[in-house]
């Protein structure tokens, strides 16, 4: 039973960063932007979150700084891809590499360390015990006592699903992806909608990054996003951006991520368990292709 509870909690903890960045990416997906910069936004968010939390002595300030860092990345994306019409794919690759370079450089420049920065002065995002649920025996243990960001991620899914499918903004968002010229000619500039989708994406990726460096662990290490942005991109493509689908896929990846932690004590070498999330992505792509074949 303990293993079961452990796996559930490891699943939720591992799913949170992928879920947050994938929801952010879903907004740009619907707006018709080929956005692969989630990885870089998340990494920048993680670094800026540590920066804010350490110097301003508050985890809330940390989250705010994380979002601000990701927004700067979104600003560069907007400048180049939306304003100057640079290829989105190229901008994304350059931004991801820029994030790796800039965070490594700033890590060295500000904290005078190489590799990783860890310090007791970094304030972590607190865990939350849900007031009523906590006292119910099994349910309480399953659902209560997680990092605050885990609950935020849950809320974000619901808000995103509502915003994309049931608001005027969501309609315009989907129109920008479906037929940008049509949207622009009816008086709503598609580029404005796209800029807003990138802003939302940056906020989500900033939250994901802040969770990585202030919740998942309490440190910043070089390239700590470790391909989560790419996995979230795979999740978006697999379910064509639907937030509920993204939630399910993210939980699946979270489960495999949690499995990695669980198998560390076993006799399987850690190098093989560490492959699991990436192999799982390949397997899910395979099932996606089968489903697509079945339809046609």
């Amino acid at each position: 039973m303990n293993i079961f509870f452990g796996l559930v909690s490891a699943t939720l903890v591992g799913a949170t960063p992928i879920l947050l960045s994938a929801i952010g990416g879903a907004f740009t997906f619907y707006a018709g932007i080929f956005n692969i910069a989630m990885e870089g936004m998340m990494l920048m968010g993680a670094f800026c979150a540590v920066l804010g939390s350490y110097f301003l002595h508050s985890w809330l300030a940390g989250i705010a700084c994380g979002i601000a860092g990701a927004l700067v990345m979104a600003g560069i994306f907007v400048l180049f891809a939306v304003r100057l019409h640079t290829d989105e794919f190229l901008t994304g690759i350059a931004l991801n590499l820029f994030a790796v370079g800039a965070t490594t450089f700033l890590l060295r420049d500000i904290f005078r360390v190489k590799g990783a920065f860890t310090n007791a002065g970094i304030r972590a995002i607190p865990t939350v015990t849900l007031p009523l649920l906590d006292h119910i025996p099994v349910v309480g243990r399953l659902l209560s006592g997680y990092n605050a960001m885990v609950y935020v991620a849950g809320l974000v899914v619901i808000v995103a699903a509502f915003a994309i499918f049931h608001t005027r903004f969501g309609l315009r968002l989907r129109a920008a992806g479906y037929n940008a010229a049509c949207l622009s000619s009816s008086g709503v500039p598609a580029s404005t909608v796209r800029i807003w989708s990138l802003v939302i994406c940056a906020v989500c990726c900033g939250l994901a990054g802040a969770y990585l460096s202030l919740g998942y662990v309490r440190l910043f290490s070089e390239n700590m996003s470790a391909g989560r942005g790419w996995i979230s991109l795979a999740a978006i493509i697999l379910v064509s951006g639907n937030p509920w689908g993204i939630a399910i896929i993210s939980l699946l990846f979270g489960f495999f991520d949690g499995l990695t932690v669980f198998l560390q004590g076993s006799r399987i070498p850690t190098q093989f368990t560490a492959m699991i999330p990436y192999a799982a992505t390949l397997v899910s792509l395979y099932f996606y292709s089968l489903r697509r074949k079945g339809r046609t």
């Binding site: 590499l97 820029f98 370079g101 800039a102 490594t104 450089f105 890590l107 060295r108 420049d109």
Partner: peptide, 11 residues
Amino acid sequence: EFIDVLQAVIV
């Protein structure tokens, strides 16, 4: 590490 930043800027 400054060079990593410079490379991305060049691109």
